[in-house]
Amino acid sequence: MRRLGGEVWFGLILLALCSAVAVLAPVLAPYDPRAFSGQPLERPSRAHPLGTNDVGQDILSELIYGARVSLTVALAAGAGTVLLGLLVGGMAGYAGGWLDQALMRLVDGMLSLPRLPLLILFATFLGSGLPQTIAVISFLFWPTTARVVRAQVQSVRQRGYVRMARQFGASHPYVFLRHILPAIGPLIAYGLVTSAGHAVAMEAGLAFLGLGDPLVKSWGLMMRFALNLPGLFLTDRWLWWLLPPALCVTLLILALALMGIGLEQNLNPRLARRWR
């Protein structure tokens, strides 16, 4: 492993901040985000630093609790994507032969589908709970991971020390866990970060389109509600209602992307390029 670059540190710090906010939300938030703590559409004040929304909920509190939603989605959907990708790609790359062929057909098929319309379609049909959102995002993004993982597993599998382990009598699970997985570890880390970034963006997008969980106030949903107000841009209200959640989403995605870029430098450049 090479030393981590500055951009990774920057990303890490942002992510840490975001996580701290999410964890400490009950302490940091001045109000219960669902409580009607003020008059509708209050301007920023001492009591409500970012004002209130159209039903009188504290926007700052909503923003702070929103970090929980976004991070949950990032983590869960990122992990889901990587796990699925690892499972399919790892199996295909390790087993080879007809299984590899069949699984890669599937991956190619999935990749040729248009993602966004599918996402909307699924979200519409499956309903709009947070778990559904996570499942849908994972489901749509795993094929990219699978493909990269497969390529890497295929090349690691041919290494002398991996084959030698079989020679010492090792079982396939041993070989996979002891040798293959550590060898593709950096790739997995990179995949996790990248997928997490995608997931945050997707969740925000879905919520923004009204396909998210209406009861879980994510940053995307906040933006949607703000934009639902007729004439939002006629006043400077958008500055404290729309801009903060938009900025938060952007910063979180940026943090993850920066970390991805840093990790990418530790990877075989050819493989990393394929991911994009």
Binding site: R159, G160, Y161, V162, M164, H179, P182, A183
Partner: peptide, 10 residues
């Protein structure tokens, strides 16, 4: 004992 020791160990 393979030819290339560098390839033979992790």
């Amino acid at each position: 004992i393979p030819q290339d020791p560098f390839d033979a160990v992790s």
